[in-house]
Design a protein around this nucleic acid. Structure first.
Lengths: 240, 240
DNA sequence: TAGATTGTTAATCGATTAACAATC
DNA sequence: TAGATTGTTAATCGATTAACAATC
């Protein structure tokens, strides 16, 4: 886990100058790409690569080097001209920017196939997300032990939600229930104090504006793929 | 399934005029939102709503009415001034644009938790995607019967891939294997004639440029959520 | 006709790109 | 110093927004 490695280099910000240090306001488009850079950098670090150029990193991430440098410039000046970027250092800076150097306790509500898949998804634990609770409304699922992020987690009844959120300081909830259960679960999560919700259920959730909600529709990408596939096959076939 | 309803109104394009009919080139940002409109419209149709205004549809979709009208204008003039949009008609036009009026046979490779979740995901079947094959490399999984889109589908060995793709005319493959298996499976799908691949495995796939690949990272959205959550809590807590 | 709502226009905004001066 | 590569600038491109003429 190389995320904890410190700077190891000096003076990259403007510490005491009265100048406007910018900060805040990283473009959304950049934020959406940071996880990609982070993943690529992590895999480079695992392969003991010490330094990358913007050109190499961009190619591996599927973007242009101009875009990559522009993106990174929003975080600060973390590269070395004529040399490139120190992999460990950059992976740490991106992780810090994304908030991955913090511990994020999450609960997953709904432990069907998707809930199991999410709990077992390696990408969660490796990025600082810790599954502290698996909750389900179905009595037959209660008590099952699921390995999430290398740790055994027992499936608990939905009734435990409020206590669990309070006890572990949970701020992020993941909904993986059937559509009908999603809104009530959302309401209870919000009531319990959760402030960000990731929704995998095929339902549009309503919550107070201060709650951050993101919806993942597993079929959207498939539809976009079909759209492009149709274009490839030629539109004439469709208009017929 | 109201997708098959025809126009029921006349003359919405420019049939025989020599004028440039535009066509092609719907902005990517618009294409990405069409599935959202489609889903909302489908649910309106189920509730027997006949007509919606851009204002209502926009609100239900989480966009502004100006953006919605702009988006729809790229497809054609399918509304009625002073009235709104005929729900059935518009849902059909969007479905046609996305290619959802065609039958899309898909194979899912990897029938673990995620493969099961995808196979059972209602959003696939209702949008014209038909799971014609579930394939797995693990012998113990072979023979299991999974219900996908209301139809029973038997899990078959990976060896059947090429025959299945040829037999059913499969053009879209879904990869839900562990990371290590993803690239070999991708290669075989491409070799078998598949031209679009949806990748849920935590691996970056390489394929010829004419192959359409989209990657779904189940953790990316969680990271973006954490980013905003961190901002909410105040950046001071981080810089400390 | 009066009221409502679309489809389009023009202005604004944000993101991408190419080029290059700064600098290791 | 010469070569390499960043960080930034300015130009371009695409997307969003607000307003309104067209029209049902």
């Amino acid at each position: 886990m190389p995320l904890t490695g410190g700077p190891g280099r000096g003076g990259h910000a403007a510490p005491g100058t009265g100048a406007p240090v910018r900060r805040r306001g990283i473009p959304d488009a950049t934020v959406a790409r940071l996880p990609v850079y982070h993943r690529v950098l992590t895999s480079l670090a695992e392969r003991r690569v010490g330094v990358v150029s913007s050109d190499e990193l961009a190619r591996a991430s599927g973007v242009t080097s101009a875009k990559l440098r522009k993106d990174l410039s929003h975080l600060g000046s973390y590269g070395t001209r004529g040399v490139g970027y120190d992999v460990e250092y950059l992976v740490y800076q991106i992780a810090r920017e994304l908030g991955l150097t913090q511990d994020w306790p999450v609960v997953i509500v709904g432990v069907g196939n998707l809930g199991h898949a999410l709990a077992g998804y390696g990408g969660f634990a490796s990025r600082g997300f810790r599954v502290v609770g698996l909750l389900d409304a179905d009595p037959v699922r209660i008590g099952e032990v699921v390995v999430a992020g290398g740790e055994p987690v027992v499936v608990r009844p939905l009734a435990d939600l409020e206590a669990l959120v309070a006890e572990c300081g949970v701020t992020i909830g993941v909904i993986a229930t059937p559509a009908a259960a999603a809104q009530p679960v959302c309401d209870r999560l919000v009531g319990a104090g959760v402030t960000s919700i990731l929704n995998f259920a095929p339902a549009v959730l309503v919550a107070p504006p201060e709650i951050g909600i993101r919806k993942v529709d597993l079929a959207v990408e498939l539809q976009i793929l079909a759209f492009h596939e149709q274009r490839k096959l030629g539109p004439a076939a469709v208009t017929a």
